[in-house]
Write a protein that binds this DNA or RNA. Structure first.
Lengths: 224, 224
DNA sequence: GGATTGTCGAATGTCTACAACTTTTCGTCG
DNA sequence: CGACGAAAAGTTGTAGACATTCGACAATCC
């Protein structure tokens, strides 16, 4: 048979998946802010679907913890307080540290190459002062790290955590990080990965996450 | 008004939640074996609900990864291969290690006490040769550990991982672990926790998880 | 005979409509 | 001004119908 490589299987995702993606996107970029109610009638009309698939999509968000359901009242976008921010970054830290350990026993160089690609996008965005692009490149970087681990479960868990991270970020658009520091931190991480220096990699990662928390909570932990 | 603390608001959980719980339970104990199709019509009739809430519940399972959906074919209980077993235990290891670190910076003694309670149940079940009770106590022990960490996200993640763990166990009921070893391993973990000896605790935990994998995959790592 | 094509049944995916129940709102009365 | 209670609005659950799609089997063609 003639194998035609450019032909890929037609992907037709069910409505519930598509709806969940759109809702997630809207929640991440702040269009649906924390505490906002996901009214069934409104959303169904707006998305051009019926309540059935919409409710299925909402159950997915609730299961992820991105939304919460209050019986007979509706489902609402989850509100994140300062404790949540710490929890998110702590859990991310544990997840990504685990991903690092997996990457180190596989192909650190290849992973480093792929991370470097995201890192270049980050550096470019930083140079141009493109903060949204910087944030996107940051997410891309961490997503690549987890994907490279090859662990389905880490990938699934990280997906939710990244959504929550972006919820935090879009809620505090005014507090801008130091782009230069961000670029440098990721560069150091890649370098440690290339050197296959596990202790240093994990230490840098933990510090990186701590920076993330302090950036969002008001860096209460920094003496001088 | 007279405040009566023993009076709690009547909890009426939505059908989708109740259905998801029942399905999860059936999947854990092997009534719904891996690969089995969750037919809508059958299940709906069997559970006495309509297809709507049932589909919502199934979406939750799919989101958790306990079931997989093949468009226009149906949703099926996830099949777990040997790689999945390793992934589950690796992820659990990372999760529970993180929980240990959190517990250590809170109230290790109180946590140790609560773990000791589950441990006594474990020892009793072991003495009587009650393998299902032993397995239940084991799950209870680890669930307690994660709950004591106080992290919502770790708890949510662990919930799914525990379901997957029990799926593995019920698929291999013939391969029974050494009950005595199991009791001793948990005792050592509690002891390390009481001593607030973080390095030892984490080392023991990792070894405990490695044991779990080897028990299920056929202990390929043991030469003789 | 073997491979392709057409057809059919069954299950999923989706929609509309309706009934039941809760919460909220709002007007009224004390 | 606050309490009570009915109406309104929203969510939750059900039922039925139809379209779409998949797997299997039968018919057809070389």
């Amino acid at each position: 048979m003639a194998e035609v490589k450019s032909l890929r299987p037609v992907k037709r995702e069910p409505a519930a998946i598509a709806i969940a993606s759109q809702l997630t996107q809207a929640i991440m970029d702040g269009s649906l802010p924390p505490g906002h109610q996901l009214g069934e009638a409104d959303l169904a009309a707006q998305l051009g679907v019926s309540r059935g698939p919409l409710r299925e999509a909402m159950q997915r968000l609730v299961q992820q913890g991105i939304a919460v359901s209050e019986p007979h009242r509706g489902v609402f976008v989850t509100k994140l307080d300062e404790e949540d921010v710490r929890d998110i970054y702590f859990t991310r830290s544990a997840m990504e540290a685990a991903a690092c350990r997996l990457v180190l026993r596989q192909d650190p160089q290849r992973t480093a190459d792929r991370l470097a690609k995201a890192h270049r996008a980050m550096a470019t965005a930083a140079r141009r002062g493109n903060m949204t692009g910087l944030s996107a490149a940051d997410m891309e970087w961490h997503q690549t790290l987890v994907a490279e681990s090859g662990s389905r479960r880490l990938a699934r868990i990280a997906e939710t955590l990244f959504v929550e991270t972006r919820m935090c970020l879009s809620a505090l658009t005014h507090r801008h990080p130091d782009p230069q520091a961000m670029v440098e931190e990721h560069a150091a991480l890649i370098e440690a990965l290339r050197a296959a220096d596990e202790p240093r990699l994990l230490t840098l990662l933990e510090a990186h996450m701590r920076d993330g928390v302090e950036r969002l909570t008001g860096r209460e932990g920094s003496p001088e």
